[in-house]
Amino acid sequence: MEVRTIKVFTTVDNINLHTQVVDMSMTYGQQFGPTYLDGADVTKIKPHNSHEGKTFYVLPNDDTLRVEAFEYYHTTDPSFLGRYMSALNHTKKWKYPQVNGLTSIKWADNNCYLATALLTLQQIELKFNPPALQDAYYRARAGEAANFCALILAYCNKTVGELGDVRETMSYLFQHANLDSCKRVLNVVCKTCGQQQTTLKGVEAVMYMGTLSYEQFKKGVQIPCTCGKQATKYLVQQESPFVMMSAPPAQYELKHGTFTCASEYTGNYQCGHYKHITSKETLYCIDGALLTKSSEYKGPITDVFYKENSYTTTIK
């Protein structure tokens, strides 16, 4: 009895394709271990004539594949690729409408935090270190965002349907971005203890939790000093293409032309909904596939993004 075979390709990165001759009487799992086709788990399936010449994702289970996976995804987590594939199996079914010149995501599976993050990423200057993220990001900007969303979920250790947080998501993504040249110098002034300067680099240099107003941050924000008295913390120097200011959701007025974009969060910790506000020729609110415009805006804002380049204080 002759062994019926077909020729397929296996890959971990969709760049390096490895030619395989597979036995049609055995499952993919018996031949390769966990195997995925377009995100779908085909591990328990036997090869079919229609699979001839198709590319299958496999887990990096030998040295060659491990090197290829690390170079593309910059992670050695053995569960990463499987999590990416199972997320992709959902995100490829989502709709990605162009809204006001940006790629958004039609609401499904509690994905409003991903839509808000995706919209924000198209408006701030950011370059990702893992080629996987950078490639998928370019495709997302062009309207094909399924891979990018699935990668975000995998890097953030999230599953489809789980509630997510924009600030946490951005923080994970910033860790995989090139923020080497970003720098922030802060000064804390206390009447009792004097003053202390701190220099922050990388992710810490672009994120701040405690106030939404970048102007206020430049002037000074009140913080408790270690001595128990009130101290003032203010920005001395900022070198970065953008800054992200966050605070627990509270009524906040966004003035046209003073910011790049913002995240609105309605609801409580267990259950809520994100919308995205962007400042173009007027203010726009993007909620999944829905767009509304207004000249002014007041609502429960939790993150505001500002364009920056270089700032030095005039406070002496």
Rank of each mutant, 00 (worst) to 15 (best):
268 N>Q: 14
191 K>P: 14
180 D>T: 10
297 Y>I: 06
82 G>R: 12
116 T>Q: 05
256 H>G: 12
23 D>K: 13
138 Y>K: 15
296 E>P: 12
174 F>Y: 03
133 L>M: 06
229 K>I: 08
174 F>S: 02
200 L>C: 11
59 L>W: 11
140 A>T: 09
112 C>E: 04
16 N>K: 10
20 Q>C: 11
5 T>H: 11
132 A>C: 06
304 V>N: 05
247 A>W: 00
74 H>N: 08
4 R>F: 10
78 P>G: 08
222 Q>C: 11
119 L>N: 02
250 A>C: 10
57 Y>I: 10
282 T>E: 14
110 N>V: 04
114 L>V: 10
94 W>F: 01
179 L>I: 04
294 S>E: 10
223 I>Q: 09
59 L>I: 10
208 Y>P: 00
180 D>H: 10
219 K>L: 10
313 T>M: 15
297 Y>M: 06
284 Y>S: 10
266 T>D: 11
70 F>Y: 10
114 L>R: 02
244 M>S: 00
116 T>H: 06
257 G>M: 07
66 R>E: 12
215 E>Q: 08
19 T>N: 13
295 S>C: 10
201 K>Y: 15
64 T>G: 12
132 A>P: 05
201 K>Q: 12
289 A>K: 09
197 Q>A: 07
39 G>E: 11
26 M>F: 08
161 G>F: 01
6 I>K: 08
137 Y>F: 14
204 E>V: 06
90 H>N: 08
316 K>F: 15
96 Y>F: 13
195 Q>G: 08
289 A>N: 12
117 A>H: 03
315 I>R: 15
212 L>F: 01
289 A>P: 08
2 E>L: 10
119 L>G: 05
173 L>H: 06
95 K>L: 14
199 T>Y: 07
44 K>T: 13
4 R>E: 13
52 E>R: 11
55 T>V: 12
154 A>V: 06
193 C>A: 04
12 V>F: 06
28 Y>I: 05
229 K>Q: 14
294 S>I: 15
186 L>I: 13
228 G>P: 00
107 W>V: 05
71 E>G: 07
208 Y>C: 09
153 L>M: 08
147 N>A: 10
173 L>E: 00
31 Q>P: 06
222 Q>I: 10
32 F>L: 12
195 Q>C: 13
16 N>C: 07
98 Q>H: 08
136 A>V: 02
4 R>P: 13
75 T>N: 12
209 M>I: 14
284 Y>W: 10
283 L>I: 15
174 F>K: 01
6 I>S: 06
71 E>S: 07
313 T>G: 11
176 H>E: 06
86 S>K: 15
18 H>C: 07
192 T>D: 13
7 K>L: 11
150 A>G: 05
313 T>V: 11
239 E>R: 10
181 S>E: 14
287 D>K: 01
84 Y>M: 04
117 A>L: 06
54 K>I: 14
173 L>P: 01
44 K>W: 10
49 N>S: 13
155 Y>F: 00
122 Q>P: 04
213 S>L: 01
306 Y>A: 01
157 N>F: 06
249 P>T: 01
245 M>C: 12
77 D>E: 12
250 A>V: 10
139 R>N: 11
185 V>C: 02
129 N>P: 04
8 V>E: 06
38 D>M: 09
188 V>L: 09
34 P>D: 13
293 K>P: 11
90 H>C: 12
313 T>A: 14
222 Q>V: 10
227 C>N: 01
84 Y>S: 04
102 L>T: 06
158 K>R: 06
284 Y>G: 06
17 L>Q: 14
18 H>Q: 07
229 K>R: 15
136 A>F: 07
133 L>H: 04
19 T>H: 13
87 A>S: 08
106 K>S: 13
298 K>T: 10
119 L>K: 02
180 D>S: 11
166 V>E: 01
92 K>P: 06
242 F>S: 00
91 T>S: 04
151 L>G: 02
127 K>P: 11
164 G>I: 03
162 E>N: 02
287 D>L: 00
77 D>F: 05
159 T>A: 15
181 S>H: 15
133 L>W: 02
58 V>S: 07
8 V>Q: 04
141 R>F: 08
243 V>N: 00
266 T>M: 12
109 D>N: 08
